[in-house]
Amino acid sequence: VTLFVALYDYEARTEDDLSAHKGEKFQILNSSEGDWWEARSLTTGETGYIPSNYVAPV
């Protein structure tokens, strides 16, 4: 399991995006899409895309 933590708040801009709150942890499901990674929030269980530069490894 690849875990990352949000460094900043991010507000989803499309229905495919996933909002993130600073300190929230995510499981990365797919990081092969360049700057946008598919992730699952460990807080809400929701999945979507987050900007890779907004997260760091735990």
Rank of each mutant, 00 (worst) to 15 (best):
K25Q: 12
G48C: 07
A39H: 01
T47Y: 08
Y8Q: 08
L3E: 08
Y10H: 04
Y8K: 07
A12Q: 06
D16N: 15
S52P: 05
I50W: 02
T47P: 00
E15L: 11
D17K: 13
W36K: 14
T47M: 08
G34K: 13
G45H: 06
H21V: 13
H21E: 08
D17Y: 13
L29E: 04
S19R: 07
K22S: 05
F4K: 01
A56Q: 09
H21Q: 11
G34A: 13
E15G: 13
D16T: 15
W36Y: 13
D9P: 06
V58T: 07
S41Y: 03
D9E: 07
A20Q: 02
R40A: 04
E38N: 07
L42A: 04
L3Q: 06
D35T: 10
E15T: 12
S41A: 04
S41K: 08
T44V: 00
E33H: 14
R13H: 09
V58A: 09
D9Y: 06
Y54N: 07
Q27F: 14
V55N: 01
T2W: 13
T44F: 03
A20T: 14
V58H: 07
S52A: 13
A12C: 06
F4T: 03
F26P: 00
S41I: 04
D16Q: 14
V55W: 03
E15P: 14
G34Q: 12
S31E: 09
R40N: 01
F4G: 04
D16E: 12
S32G: 11
G23N: 04
T2A: 11
A6K: 00
S41V: 02
D9N: 08
V1K: 11
E33G: 13
A6P: 00
T47H: 07
S52V: 07
E33M: 14
A12P: 11
Q27D: 05
E46A: 13
R13M: 11
W37F: 09
V1A: 13
Y10I: 12
H21S: 12
V5T: 04
N53A: 14
N53Q: 11
W36V: 09
E46V: 10
V55M: 13
H21G: 05
A20L: 15
A56G: 08
W37H: 03
F4N: 01
E46H: 12
A20P: 02
R13V: 12
S52T: 06
P51H: 09
A12F: 03
V5C: 09
V55H: 01
D16H: 15
G45T: 02
G48M: 03
D35A: 10
K22D: 01
N53V: 10
V58Y: 13
D17A: 14
A56E: 09
E24Q: 05
T47G: 02
G45E: 04
A12R: 09
G45M: 06
P51F: 07
I50N: 01
Y8C: 15
K25Y: 15
R13N: 08
I28Y: 02
F4I: 05
R13S: 10
T2G: 11
D9T: 06
L29C: 08
A6I: 06
Y54G: 06
A56R: 09
T43W: 14
T44N: 05
T47L: 07
K22I: 11
G48K: 02
G45C: 10
E11D: 09
V5Q: 06
F4L: 05
H21P: 02
L42F: 06
D16L: 14
Y10N: 00
S41P: 01
R13P: 07
A20G: 03
L18Q: 02
W36Q: 07
A20E: 02
T43R: 13
